[in-house]
């Protein structure tokens, strides 16, 4: 797979602190974990894993527990702007592949960081990467994840930025021992706050109302129907005595209606 027989590409994976969807607790972010996994596959020991934030964060040990010897932390306050730190770090390193998640699981999660880094570094960017099937010093063959499990094959020249889709190879289990032993290289930085974001109001997410089937009724009967009819589907239709063909037709109609067959 690797033409030079050794891991000669220098890969950097950026990791952030994830958020468990159920408990809201810090965790290894789903996509970032995959970015580390893919980085390990491509570069082995040549992988550098970088985090901008607090070096004491216990979740970093979960990333390290994937078998990393060391982890680089660009020290930063919670309200800091990661972009300048990351840019400084990357422009001084000889990395030629940068992997990261699509959107962070905490904070603004706008997903802009990879784009801003790529723009500043002048590197091409691929979003939603499912796999990097082949890489050498000059270029890489990349599979992009498309909806419904589709894939697109793209060739990209090095250096490049890639954001990792949930379709990429799953992050390996994190082990306690190695995680504890990994070295954390701390790079102290000047504090750069994200001024725009400090003006925002942040509150727990309000549930979004599900759109009702909008009926712009033209007459009383339609209004009556819209107000009283069960929600679409209605549930609990049982077909017992019809012929198999009719039953199959009913299923087929439902599948068409739900647009799962096109």
């Amino acid at each position: 797979m690797l033409p030079n027989g050794e891991h000669s590409v220098k890969v950097v994976s950026l990791v952030s602190i994830g958020r468990h969807p159920q408990s809201g607790r810090s965790r290894r972010a789903e996509q970032d974990g995959r970015a580390v996994e893919l980085g390990l596959k491509l570069a082995g020991d040549n992988l550098t894993v970088v985090h901008a934030g607090d070096s004491q964060e216990p979740v970093l040990r979960q990333y390290a527990g994937m078998g990393l010897n060391a982890l680089t932390v660009l020290s930063q306050e919670a309200d800091g702007d990661a972009l300048p730190l990351m840019y400084d770090f990357l422009s001084q390193s000889d990395a030629n592949v940068l992997l990261m998640g699509i959107r962070a699981e905490s904070g603004e999660s706008s997903g802009m960081l990879p784009y801003l880094l790529a723009e500043k570094l002048g590197w091409p960017l691929l979003s939603r990467v499912a796999d990097i099937v082949h890489i050498n010093q000059r270029e890489a063959e990349v599979l992009l994840a498309l909806p419904r499990g589709q894939r697109r094959s793209v060739t990209v020249s090095l250096p490049f930025v890639a954001t990792i889709d949930n379709a990429a190879i799953e992050a390996r289990q994190t082990a306690f021992g190695p995680g504890l032993r990994a070295k954390i290289n701390l790079i102290e930085n000047q504090k750069i706050t994200d001024d725009t974001a400090t003006a925002w109001q942040i509150s727990p997410a309000k549930p979004r109302p599900k759109r009702m089937k909008v009926v712009k009724a033209k007459n009383a009967a339609d209004r009556f129907k819209a107000a009283t009819a069960k929600p679409a589907g209605g549930g609990g239709k049982i077909m017992k005595n019809e012929t198999p063909a009719e039953k199959a037709q009913a299923i087929f109609d439902l599948l068409l209606e739900e647009k799962v067959i096109r």
Binding site: G65, R172, Q173, T174, A175, G177, P178
Partner: peptide
Amino acid sequence: TLEKGETPNKGA
């Protein structure tokens, strides 16, 4: 589990 991170199947 603690050193290798190799709990099989759904273990991880």
